[in-house]
Design a protein around this nucleic acid. Structure first.
Length: 423
RNA sequence: GGAGAGGUGACUGAGUGGCCGAAAGUACCGGUUUUGAAAACCGGCGACGGGUUAAACCGUCCCAGGGUUCGAAUCCCUGCCUCUCCGCCA
């Protein structure tokens, strides 16, 4: 949610900013609504004031033992009028909220113009892409013989699920362990365990609702609970409706969870393999910081995710998403793309975003600034550190040999119980 | 699942229809004192919104949503949550 005050004071700036997103903002409709809001709100508050005064008068008159009937007659019609005004105001405010919550975040000034992923800008590249003396296979072909089974997953559940068996399943766990250990021990994040089902308020707070309900799995109707699409939702909502003390800032959380996505609208995309699944494992990094800290925190958090790729010696590149590819709630996003020899392409393995105060405003997540003594909205920054399923794929494809075996990366060996090669 | 108790400001906690946006204490901020700190003492200290150049001023909020009333933290209904006991259970 954007700052409604900015809409009242500098609508031109709002238009300019949203234009960068190619978001068609109807300023006239907004202004009409805002004018009505103001008039109705002032009127309502005046009536409320009248009510309060008269009630006080009646109370005092009664205390003195005076006849209050004349006073009661005077306020007879007030109730009805007030009720009407309050209803109208509530309607307008609901309309206003609906309008505001559908508007995406402003983009950071450095975000490049562009329509889709074609226009993203490469920031850096790391690692040497492995050269094979044979034709490298993709993870599906590699996985067939060593325990990656899509058919049995489809039987158990449906398409877009995977079953992992034996050492391959263990390697995914090893990857998760490595990430949690590095982020907590070396990068200063506090390991966190959270519910995998969340309520609508939490999803609203991070921006998935109301606009993107179709992307979610709803697990229960009463109470309304959804499977989490990312740990970002439960973890960030830790600070919903909270005023964090200055001494506790910044807050840094690392959290491993499964993630569940309906992938509605992704028909035909990445149908092969376990790139795009209804369920996948991810380690998420979340930072709750002050406004001054967020730009730097975003860079650092991205570096923390990069360190995992470096530790695993997986070639990757870092791209800055263009305007058209930057998500609804984000103001600036880096994607980390890992090299997949089987596809001969870089593929997204992490997405690190600075949401600034957009989520915080929805969540009423604040901290107390000791300089002013007043609560201020926090900034939220998060990123995958990393998507474990895709990391597994990347390890498989980058560490394969001619026989289709997978050599365990050094960094994972401590977690593999002596296994050095799979296959 | 059964029975009971309860949800008040950053925290503890008083408040059963008007004098309550709310006692008191803690924490916090400022001051006095002190070489400094602590203690003591004095003063300040909720959030959100409207309004204003800025103020004044006004409104809303005592878990949430409804209701009763001229008037609700206080009474009624529904929901959510927490705690205690019993049952069941990883």
């Amino acid at each position: 949610m954007l700052d409604p005050r900015l809409f009242r004071t500098d609508l031109d700036e709002v238009k300019k900013q949203l234009d960068r997103r190619s978001y068609a903002f109807d300023a006239t409709a907004y202004e009409t609504l805002e004018t009505r809001r103001k008039a109705v709100q002032i009127n309502t508050q005046e009536l409320q004031n009248e009510k309060n005064k008269s009630a006080k008068n009646i109370g005092q008159a009664k205390a003195k033992g005076e006849d209050i009937q004349p006073l009661l007659d005077q306020v007879q019609h007030l109730g009805e009028q007030l009720k009407q005004a309050e209803t109208e105001l509530a309607d307008i405010q609901n309309e206003m909220t609906a309008l505001m919550e559908a508007i995406p975040n402003f983009l950071d000034e450095v975000v490049p113009v562009g329509k889709d992923e074609q226009d993203n800008v490469e920031i850096s590249k790391w690692g040497k892409t492995p050269e094979f003396t044979f034709e490298p296979k993709d993870h599906v072909d590699l996985g067939e013989k060593i325990g990656l089974d899509f058919e049995v997953a489809a039987k158990i559940a449906s398409a877009r699920f995977a079953v992992l068996k034996g050492p391959l399943a263990r390697m995914q766990r090893a990857i998760i362990q490595l990430m949690l250990d590095m982020h907590s021990a070396e990068h200063g994040y506090s390991e966190t365990y959270v519910p995998f089902l969340v309520n609508a308020d939490s999803l609203y707070g991070t921006g998935q609702l109301p606009k993107f309900e179709a992307d979610l799995f709803k697990a229960s109707e009463d109470p309304a609970l959804y499977l989490i699409p990312t740990a970002e939702v439960p973890v960030t909502n830790i600070v919903r409706d909270v005023i964090v003390e200055a001494k506790d800032m910044p807050l840094k959380f690392v959290c491993h969870t499964p993630c569940f996505r309906s992938e509605a609208g992704a028909y035909g995309r990445d149908v092969r393999g376990m790139i795009r699944q209804h369920q996948f494992e991810k380690v998420e990094l979340v930072q709750i910081v002050t406004a001054e800290q967020s730009a730097l925190a975003h860079e650092e958090l991205t570096n923390h995710a990069e360190n995992i790729l470096k530790k695993l010696n997986l070639p990757y590149r870092k791209v800055l998403l263009c305007a058209g590819d930057t998500g609804f709630s984000s103001s600036k996003t880096y994607d980390l793309e890992v090299w997949l020899p089987g596809q001969g392409k870089y593929r997204e393995i992490s997405s690190c975003s600075n949401f600034k105060d957009f989520q915080a405003r929805r969540m009423q997540a604040r901290w107390r600034n000791p300089e002013t003594g007043k609560p201020e909205l926090v900034h939220t920054v998060n990123g995958s550190g990393l998507a474990a399923g895709r990391t597994l794929i990347a390890v498989m494809e980058n560490y394969q040999d001619e026989q289709g075996r997978i050599h365990i990366p050094e960094a994972l060996k401590p977690y593999m119980g002596g296994i050095e090669i799979i296959g």
